[in-house]
Design a protein around this nucleic acid. Structure first.
Length: 659
DNA sequence: CTAGGGTTAG
C-alpha cells in the first residue's frame, strides 16, 4: 500500500523541511506502508529542484517495503540484450508469478519492445491481468517509438473502452510526438479534444509542450505560440519547443517565394526576442536552445550573435554535438565565413549526413563546386548514403559553377544508383542548371514532362533563365503560369517587365506595370544589410535616412566617377520603367547594395572585407560594377543574395557570372 | 513509484 505525502515548500523555499518528512515516515512504517514524498511549491506544482531528493527517499522506502523491486530476476531482465535471453527471463517471471504484477510487466514491456517481434510484446501486454493506465501508457509510448502509431492509437481506443480507466498526463505526449512526426494535423486536432475532455485544468508542462510542438511541426506556429502563452512556468524543454518552432519556421522558403522573406526574418527575430525573455526567467539554455538560436542567426545573417552563441557553448562546456555542429556550419556559410565552417566541420568528433549536407551546400553556394563534389565523394567513402538533400546540394554545386553534364548525370544517378525519388526541388535545380547554361528550351521541355504539378518556384527558375538569356518567348510562358500561381508577388511582374524593357518593348513593359498596379501589387523594395563593428545597417534603394547619408552619397559620387573612368557602362536593361537612359543610370547607382558598399568603404578599415546581405537577387548592373569596385578599392566584397554568395575580389566574382 | 515533451541539412 502506498501513502502519498505532499510537502509544501512555501515557507521553506530553500531547505527541505526534514521534520515533516520524518513524521510522515514514522507513521508509514508503523502501518507497513510505502511513503511517497513529493515536494510542492507555493502554487501546488511539483518543485523540480527537489526531484532527485524525492526520488532517492522514495526508492529507499520502496526497497524497504516492496521486495519485488530488488528481485534478482528484474536485474537479469535489465541486462537482456537479445530476444533469446529475454525469453528465458520471461519464463522465470511466469514461473515465479512476477509477471502478474504491474511494475515487472512494465519493465519487461520496455525491454521487449526493443528486442522482441511485435506480437510477442503485445502478447505480454494482453496477458496482464487488469492492465492499469500505467501499463497502457508504457505500451502506447513504446509503440510510438517503434513507429507503430496506428497500433498505439488502437491501444488508446481499447483503453478508452474500459470504463475503469481514464487517460492521464502521461498518455498524450508520446501520441502527439508521433502525430507531429507524421504531420497528422486532423488526427491531432481530434486527439486534442480528448485532452480538453480528460485533462482539465491543463497544467502539465509535458502535455502542453507536446501540443505546442505538434502544432508547430504541422506548420501552425501561431497555434503553438498560443499554447506557449498559456503556460505559466515554462521549463527548459518548453522554452526549447517554442524557440525551435520559430527557428524552424524561419527557413521554410529558402530560395522560394520572396513574399515569405519578411515572415522568415520576423520568425528569426522572434527566436532572439524570446530567448531574451528566457534568460530573464532564469532558465539555463541547453544545446537544444542554442541550436535554435544559431539557426535563427544563420537565417538573419547575424554573425555577431551567432558567434556569441558559439562562445557560449565553449564557455559553458556544452557539447559540440552534430546538431550544434550542423547549425554552426550553416551559420558560418550563410554569413560568408566559409573558412570557419570547414574548420569546424573537420573538428567535429562525429559527422553524420546532416553535417555533410550542410557543408556540401555551403561550398556550393560559395561557388566552390569542385570542392563540394570532392566532399560528396568523401562522404560516400565514409559509408554514408546520400539522401534527397545531399543530391540537391550536389546539383546546386554543379549549377553554380556551370557543370551541366555533371549535374545531369547526378540527377540520373539519384534514381538509378541511390534509389531516391526526385522531388520538385530537384527538378527546380535541374531546370536552374539547364537554364543558366543557356539550354532554356531543354529546361522548358523538362518542366512539361515532370511527373508532378509544376509549382511557382519551378516556373521562377525558368523565368530567371529566360531573363538571363533574353528568351522572351519562354519568359512569357513562365510568367503567365507564375501570375496564375502567385498573383500577389511583385517580383514576377518586375522580371517580365525588365525583359520587355531590355528588348525595348516599352509598351509591353508598361502594360505589365499597369497590370501590377491594377491588381494592387506592391513592388518589394530592395534592401541591403551591412555589418559594421557588430551592428547591422540597412539601406533601401535611394535611401537617405541613414545618419551618415551625406557622406555615403559623397562617396557614391566618387565611386560612380571612378567606375566611369574604368570604363563601366551602366547595364540599364534591368531598369523597370520606360525612362530616359540617364535617369536609368541614376536609378541604378542608388541601388541599395551600392549605398551599403559606399557606407562600408567609409566606415570600415581598408583591409576588412565588405559583407552585404541582400533580400533580392543581385542585378546585372550591380554585379558588374561590384566586380570593378572590388578592384578599384582593393577590397574583397562578399554579397549574400537570395540564393547564394558572390565573392568579389580584384575584378572578378566567385560565381563566374553564373547566378 | 513505475509511463510522457525540446535539437541539425533544403
Amino acid at each position: 500500500m502506498f501513502v502519498t505525502t505532499y510537502i509544501f515548500l512555501d515557507h521553506f523555499p530553500d531547505s527541505i523541511p526534514e521534520c515533516s518528512y520524518l513524521n510522515a515516515q514514522n507513521e508509514s512504517l508503523k502501518q507497513k506502508t510505502c511513503l511517497v514524498v513529493h515536494v510542492l511549491n507555493a502554487k501546488g506544482i511539483r518543485d523540480t529542484r527537489w526531484a532527485s531528493w524525492c526520488r532517492k527517499i522514495n526508492s529507499d522506502m520502496m526497497r524497504a517495503v516492496s521486495p519485488t523491486l530488488n528481485c534478482p530476476i528484474l536485474h537479469l531482465l535489465q541486462k537482456c540484450k537479445t530476444f533469446n535471453t529475454l525469453k528465458q527471463v520471461h519464463a522465470q517471471m511466469i514461473t515465479t508469478g512476477l509477471i502478474l504484477h504491474t511494475y515487472p510487466i512494465s519493465r519487461i514491456l520496455l525491454i521487449s519492445s526493443s528486442l522482441s517481434p511485435l506480437p510477442y510484446t503485445l502478447a505480454i501486454f494482453s496477458r496482464a491481468p487488469n492492465p492499469s493506465i500505467f501499463l497502457y501508457n508504457t505500451l502506447i509510448s513504446r509503440l510510438t517509438v517503434n513507429n507503430q502509431v496506428k497500433l498505439a492509437l488502437s491501444l488508446y481506443d481499447q483503453m478508452l473502452a474500459d470504463p475503469n480507466l481514464r487517460p492521464n498526463n502521461y498518455t498524450y505526449p508520446s501520441l502527439f510526438k508521433a502525430f507531429a512526426a507524421q504531420q497528422w494535423f486532423k488526427h491531432g486536432q481530434a486527439l486534442h479534444v480528448h485532452i480538453l475532455k480528460f485533462i482539465y485544468p491543463l497544467r502539465d508542462n509535458f502535455v502542453q509542450a507536446s501540443l505546442l510542438n505538434f502544432y508547430s511541426r504541422c506548420g501552425r506556429v501561431d497555434i503553438a505560440r498560443y499554447f506557449f502563452d498559456q503556460i505559466m512556468e515554462p521549463d527548459l524543454a518548453t522554452w526549447n519547443s517554442i524557440l525551435s518552432a520559430y527557428a524552424r519556421n524561419s527557413s521554410v522558403s529558402l530560395s522560394g517565394d520572396p513574399r515569405l522573406l519578411d515572415e522568415n526574418t520576423s520568425s528569426s527575430l522572434e527566436v532572439l526576442n524570446l530567448f531574451g525573455h528566457m534568460q530573464k526567467s532564469g532558465a539555463e539554455p541547453s544545446e537544444v536552445t542554442l541550436v535554435a538560436i544559431i539557426t535563427a542567426c544563420a537565417e538573419l545573417g547575424a554573425l555577431g550573435q551567432g558567434i556569441w552563441a558559439h562562445v557560449y557553448i565553449i564557455k559553458n562546456a556544452l557539447s559540440l554535438n552534430h546538431y550544434i555542429g550542423t547549425a554552426l556550419i550553416t551559420l558560418y556559410t550563410n554569413c560568408g565565413r566559409l573558412g570557419f565552417a570547414s574548420q569546424l566541420f573537420y573538428q567535429l568528433p562525429h559527422t553524420d549526413i546532416f553535417c555533410f549536407n550542410a557543408m556540401i551546400r555551403g561550398l556550393a553556394i560559395h561557388g566552390r563546386g569542385c570542392e563540394a563534389l570532392d566532399l560528396f565523394e568523401t562522404m560516400k567513402h565514409k559509408g554514408l548514403t546520400p539522401d534527397n538533400v545531399t543530391m540537391l546540394a550536389v546539383m546546386c554545386a554543379c549549377s553554380h559553377v556551370g557543370l551541366v553534364d555533371e549535374g545531369r548525370r547526378y540527377f540520373e544517378l539519384m534514381t538509378s544508383i541511390y534509389g531516391l525519388k526526385p522531388k520538385i526541388e530537384h527538378y527546380c535545380c535541374l531546370v536552374d542548371l539547364l537554364g543558366r547554361a543557356g539550354l532554356v528550351k531543354e529546361a522548358e521541355e523538362r518542366i512539361l514532362t515532370i511527373p508532378m504539378k509544376p509549382n511557382a518556384v519551378l516556373w521562377r527558375c525558368l523565368l530567371g533563365a529566360a531573363r538571363v538569356h533574353g528568351d522572351l518567348e519562354t519568359g512569357e510562358v513562365a510568367l503567365k503560369k507564375l501570375v496564375e500561381l502567385e498573383p500577389e508577388t511583385s517580383g514576377n511582374y518586375v522580371l517580365l517587365s525588365n525583359m520587355y524593357s531590355c528588348k525595348k518593348k516599352w509598351d509591353d513593359a508598361k502594360r505589365v506595370r499597369q497590370l501590377m498596379k491594377e491588381r494592387g501589387v506592391e513592388k518589394m523594395p530592395g534592401s541591403s544589410l551591412v555589418e559594421v563593428d557588430g551592428s547591422m545597417h540597412e539601406f533601401l534603394a535611394g535611401d537617405k535616412s541613414h545618419p551618415r547619408a551625406r557622406e555615403v552619397y559623397l562617396k557614391l559620387e566618387d565611386m560612380n566617377a571612378k567606375l566611369q573612368e574604368h570604363g563601366h557602362r551602366a547595364r540599364t536593361r534591368e531598369v523597370l520603367f520606360d525612362i530616359e537612359e540617364e535617369e536609368k543610370e541614376e536609378a541604378l547607382s542608388y541601388h541599395s547594395e551600392r549605398l551599403a558598399i559606399a557606407f562600408a568603404l567609409i566606415a570600415t578599415d581598408s583591409c576588412t572585407p565588405v559583407r552585404i546581405i541582400k533580400n533580392l537577387r543581385v542585378c546585372v548592373d550591380c554585379h558588374s560594377s561590384t566586380k570593378l569596385l572590388s578592384r578599384i578599392y582593393g577590397r574583397e566584397i562578399i554579397v549574400r543574395d537570395r540564393t547564394r554568395f558572390h565573392h568579389f575580389n580584384n575584378g572578378s566574382c566567385s560565381c563566374l557570372d553564373y547566378w
